[in-house]
Amino acid sequence: MSEPLVFHFDINGDDFSTAGQASVQIKNNLRQLGLSPEIIRRVSIAMYEGEINMVIHANGGTADVKVYEDCVEIILADNGPGIKDIDMAMKEGYSTASDSTRSLGFGAGMGLPNMKRYTDDMKIDSTVGVGTTVTMKINIA
């Protein structure tokens, strides 16, 4: 198998207005690579939800996107507070976001469920007080 194309982003943690820049960049990169609109949409949304999560909860982090011949892998890593109860966090409608976050239209408790919905595989490694790494895969072939 050939080496994947790798894109790396630092996610700024203090600004909702710049959140999504990495996702938009990835969308453009994948379009240039000729992936189908539906795959691009799934990758973009999953990554955007992850970016927003890192802004809301973790003061930013990093995103690495690896494009293989048969799949796209997204690795989101932060040094935030960690997720105490992953089962609860995965429930639609459950959120610990603040009122100010909600007033922007976020904090609906749909972020992680959407990431799962749009990916073929998702793994969450989280340690309270240390941070969270979410690894997602979307099959292209």
Binding site: A19, G20, S23, P37, I40, Y48
Partner: peptide, 15 residues
């Protein structure tokens, strides 16, 4: 009825 900058990002990403 939302009109902040995130609406533009969501519209673009959700296609």
């Amino acid at each position: 009825i939302m009109s902040n900058v995130n609406v533009i990002a969501v519209a673009s990403l959700a296609d």
